[in-house]
């Protein structure tokens, strides 16, 4: 996977070029989806030759997987910042909600990008990396919360749908700007806090 590390200096890696490739790829996949995405279009948008893309990446799938892994790892890293396994469940959840919201506000395109690929085969590769990199902290936190009787033991899907999906729905409303009840919806601390309190109530044994 890291073949480029051994590349001859004749074709050097250029961090600016790499950043531009990454940015454009994310932008294009968010706008046009994974199906319409091609190396040639990306090369044109990023101002590099298609040959250059293949120096950095083995093929199109490799490019998508590498970029998505990077974004996911950064997202999880920020989401779990400040979380300790021994924290109370309520405090740990509040920190994760704050972190996730912060990531969303700072990198909206990255969030949309991950949402785009979350339900494609590409994401299977990423899940493994995430699990090995972050599984420990989150796993211990959940284990403690359940043992201390602060959170109901649930199948993962049920847990996630209650614990985080409400936050993502609020973010979605925020991104759309309009909801069935309002033409100008903006996410606020009090909206988030109100929702979080209901989520905690729902997860309490």
């Amino acid at each position: 996977m890291n073949i480029h590390l051994y590349l001859h200096p004749m074709r050097t890696r250029d961090a600016n070029k790499e950043n531009s490739i990454r940015e454009k790829a994310i932008e294009m996949i968010v706008k046009e989806g994974l199906d319409g995405f091609s190396m040639q279009k990306l090369a044109k948008a990023a101002g590099v030759s298609p040959a250059t893309l293949y120096i950095y990446y083995k093929d199109r799938d490799d490019l998508v997987i590498k970029i998505a892994t990077e974004v996911s790892v950064r997202m999880m890293d920020i989401s779990l910042r400040g979380l300790h396994p021994k924290m109370s469940f309520a405090e740990g959840m509040s920190i994760q909600w704050k972190n996730r919201l912060e990531f969303y506000i700072s990198y909206p395109l990255d969030v949309q990008f991950i949402e785009q690929i979350r339900y494609t085969p590409v994401y299977d590769n990423i899940k493994k990396t995430i699990r090995t990199t972050f599984g420990d902290v989150l796993g211990k936190f959940m284990h403690n919360a359940i043992n201390k009787g602060e959170c109901t033991p649930l199948p993962f899907e049920v847990y996630w749908s209650i614990a985080f999906a409400p936050l993502y729905q609020l973010m979605k409303f925020h991104a759309q700007g309009e909801t069935p009840a309002s033409d100008n919806f903006k996410i606020t601390d009090s909206t988030v806090e109100l929702t979080l309190q209901l989520v905690l109530k729902a997860l309490k044994p």
């Binding site: 091609s38 190396m39 040639q40 298609p50 293949y54 083995k58 093929d59 199109r60 799938d61």
Partner: peptide
């Protein structure tokens, strides 16, 4: 060979 791209690039 990049099977998922239109240029069928051989690398």
């Amino acid at each position: 060979v990049d099977e998922h791209d239109i240029d069928n690039v051989l690398r």
